[in-house]
Design a protein around this nucleic acid. Structure first.
Length: 265
DNA sequence: ATGGTCGGAAGCCGA
């Protein structure tokens, strides 16, 4: 069968229900991975998702900050949550999809403003988070397991993943140390960037635009912070990938847009 | 070089 997976940092799931509905209508992903749901589990709006056919739901949220969820039209098995850096601040949920495919939905810390781990605890946390995810990925590594990692990784690794490589070298999300950590995380497990598999690295590609721009589309100062990675056994089945730029122009948008992968399983 | 805008909380913080 074909499986379509979307990842989307919604910046409050309760504020974005109409747009989730629109995404479901227009793209019909089987599985939708959300970040920054910003809601405790007891207050998560389950009903609207069930009505859209997403009956299988895994949530991991807290008050105000962070929060991740997997909602699915296909059964989810062996679901769980994982904490990183000695805390559980609701940044990782995982589940097994039909066919035994492991799916991980991750929200990497943003990292604050100052790109120096000595001066900025949030930046130190971000680097530590990626270091631990690299170790985790290395330990899991094998040649058979079909595994998918999606989420807001808060790093734009390529020069074409930002509007100006030169101007963002000292801006958190595109500093060399962050790109190194993300590359390390990728190499440790042998992850393949499923989006760049289809959209060549020379092509500019963004998934996030700041709310602060007067005209996000005209200035187009975006970054590609949202990613879908797959383990090597899944690469032969990759069919297409898309970053839904138009969603940034929807009414009361998130500052991130959905990233969608279709694969044969 | 600076400030611009969201969301959720509560009388600011994190993005």
């Amino acid at each position: 069968m074909k499986l379509r997976i979307a990842t989307w940092n919604v910046n409050s799931v309760r504020q974005r229900l109409d747009l989730v509905k629109r995404l479901a209508a227009e793209k019909a992903p089987h599985v939708l991975c959300l970040q920054e749901t910003k809601v405790e589990d007891k207050d998560f709006p389950l009903e609207p998702f069930v009505e859209l056919g997403y009956r299988h739901i895994l949530i991991h949220g807290m008050k105000s900050y962070n929060g991740v969820a997997i909602v699915s039209r296909v059964p989810l098995e062996k679901g769980g949550r994982k904490g990183w850096c000695g805390k559980d601040d609701c940044r990782h949920v995982f589940a097994t999809l039909p066919g035994g495919i492991e799916l991980h939905n991750v929200y990497v810390p943003s990292g604050g403003d100052i790109p120096d781990p000595k001066q900025n605890d949030k930046f130190a946390h971000k680097l530590q988070f990626m270091t631990e995810m690299a170790e985790w990925g290395a330990a899991l590594r094998d040649s058979e397991t079909r595994r998918i990692l999606v989420g807001d990784l808060n790093v734009a690794p390529l020069e074409t993943d930002v509007w100006s490589h030169k101007q963002l070298l000292k801006i958190v999300s595109h500093t060399p140390v962050e790109v190194d950590h993300l590359s390390g995380m990728m190499a440790a497990h042998g992850w393949v960037d499923a989006v760049r598999h289809f959209i060549p690295p020379k092509v500019r590609l963004y998934s996030w635009w700041s709310y602060r721009a007067r005209d996000w589309s005209a200035s187009d100062r975006g970054r590609r912070l949202d990613h879908i990675w797959v383990s090597p056994p899944l690469t032969p089945g990759l069919e297409s990938a898309e970053v839904l730029r138009e969603a940034r122009g929807w009414e009361t948008p998130s500052d991130h847009v959905p990233v969608i992968l279709t694969l044969k399983i």
